[in-house]
Design a protein around this nucleic acid. Structure first.
Lengths: 313, 313
DNA sequence: ACCGGAACGAAAATATCTTTCACATCGTGA
DNA sequence: TCACGATGTGAAAGATATTTTCGTTCCGGT
């Protein structure tokens, strides 16, 4: 049996980087209005301009003490700066502080270093995975996806192959499909995978998940499935890899930067899971009639409240 | 060895020290804590999450009237969200509003519908998962995370518990830890998990992964580990759930919107994996000396990207 | 030295926030 | 079904914070 090999080529371009926020012109206002201020008021204005965040945490009394003035003076200053009262100045101050905070561009574009503080690690990882999602979504061929969904929705049975980190993705897909009543199985044992692949026939679906696109243990069962006439799908980061030879539909995941502290296995997984989710939702839509009860059931199960004791005052 | 069970309620950052006011991860927090809120509180939380700027301009009484509740409820909600009182919530709100003001991408806020075209599904899923990542990153307590990392880095052995979708996350973490030379094992069989938990002792680490925070099969082994003196960590979407009773460190994942076509199991996974990645990178940093060779090896293995496509017989 | 006026702060007056407490509501088990 | 206990809720009392009032102080000019 001779079957054609499809190819997809696309390099995703992710979302843009948000522009730096416009700075509130409070400092300028202070400088402009300083001449028309009395000495005490200037002290207050200066304190406010110097440390918005800190002052935002203070009450009128607090700020008055800090600047060695009185509450009345603080309120007068707030008025002079254009606010109805101190309360509003304080609100504006909080906003300013937040802007300044977010304005500090965390160097997330750089790679993760060994001595990065943990907060940076979190930010960088999150940013990176977001990027991977954006890229994968942008680069995903919806035609291929729709085709894969159709095949899955009408499949007699579905086998999913994946080893290592991709094995977990395969299992994730399987779990989801089972939940909506499809017959699916994940294989991470190459031998068993091939053994089972032999049982496949036209109308069945075989899916291979591999980031590198050249994992023999996964390609082999897909090849067998392909030759048995099953509809084959490849979820891979390398649309030009060997695995696509035997894939009717290729779903490409984005390949993010990798490095020592950011192994490929990590970022690839994110994109693969997005694809898996898309497949799942697509199939759920198609088989909504039969899937709805199961979906509702699992939704209910989690919606049910496990009430816990409330806090004491 | 007997260890005291912690109080059920925990606003996210453990320890007896006064919890610092959380950053502007408000929408995330609202979603995370929504399930543990009463109806009235949910109304307030929703209003606040929906229009931070507008609410920041309101007084307690105003917000109470707007949401058709009482001042008391508003204050209670503020407390639940982690602020000392409404005043502070309002301040945070102002900050959030300012941040939002300074430009953000338009959101695809609608839910996934049964008749959505596949392209929309992809976009919505991608957006949603990105949101989950951002929320989780913003809401993650770095102190708790650092503590968990320390414990892991020095652990004699590490057990990870998780069932269902969370089981895959547990496996993912285990795979990663093993790769850098740590002794880790994932358990999805409750019986075996408990059996193994009994073997744990001080210096060991036990990690429970559960979105709902009330999965008995996962809580039980964690309890045993806790009582045996092991350092326990909970990765959960419900920082007020029962599981946190036995957790020395709680790592909270964001709870995204869920619906019929978007089960909790799906979006929760994304956040959990981010946390897992953070743990992994954190530990890799700490144990860099010993981890580097293994990391380099696996990097090398994948760096040979262009392995010539070989046609199997 | 004396006066006029602006600057300033103490304290009263007001607004706002927090806590308390009693009642309503709901789920649960007899 | 009913009674009961637990939980959710808001009105109003209580505590804080903000704003206003008003008298005192501090100048600079006669």
């Amino acid at each position: 049996m001779t079957r054609e090999v499809k190819k997809t080529f696309d390099s995703g371009s992710g979302g843009g980087v948000p522009a730096p926020p416009p700075p509130a012109a409070l400092a300028a206002k202070v400088r402009t209005l300083a001449p028309s201020m009395t000495r005490s008021m200037q002290r207050v204005a200066e304190a406010v301009a110097e440390d918005p965040a800190g002052c935002a945490a203070l009450t009128v009394t607090g700020l008055a003490q800090l600047t060695g003035t009185s509450e009345a003076t603080v309120v007068r200053t707030a008025r002079l700066l254009g606010y109805p009262g101190y309360r509003d100045l304080r609100l504006a101050l909080a906003g300013l502080a937040a802007q300044q905070q977010s304005g500090r561009a965390p160097a997330i574009t750089t790679d993760i270093a060994v001595d990065d503080p943990i907060a940076d690690v979190v930010a960088k990882l999150a940013y990176d995975e977001q990027q991977t999602l954006a890229d994968t979504a942008a680069g995903l061929d919806t035609v291929q996806l729709a085709a894969a969904v159709s095949a899955l929705a009408g499949a007699r049975r579905t086998d999913v192959y994946g080893v290592g980190a991709s094995g977990l993705v395969a299992q994730d897909l399987t779990q989801k499909l089972l939940r909506i009543g499809l017959l699916a199985h994940a294989h991470s044992d190459p031998h068993l995978a091939v053994t089972n692949a032999v049982q496949l026939r036209p109308g069945d679906v075989a899916i291979a998940v591999t980031h590198s696109g050249s994992t023999g243990d996964v390609i082999e069962p897909l090849r067998v499935a392909f030759e048995r006439g099953a509809t084959t799908v490849a979820v891979t980061g390398r649309p030009d890899g060997p695995v696509t030879q035997y894939a009717d539909h290729v779903l490409t995941t984005s390949t993010a930067r990798e490095s020592e502290l950011r192994p490929a296995a990590m970022s690839s997984r994110t994109g693969q899971l997005l694809v898996v989710d898309c497949l799942f939702v697509g199939v759920a839509q198609r088989t909504y009639e039969s899937a709805a009860p199961s979906l509702a059931a699992s939704y209910e199960a989690l919606a049910h409240r496990h009430r816990v004791p409330r806090q004491s005052p």
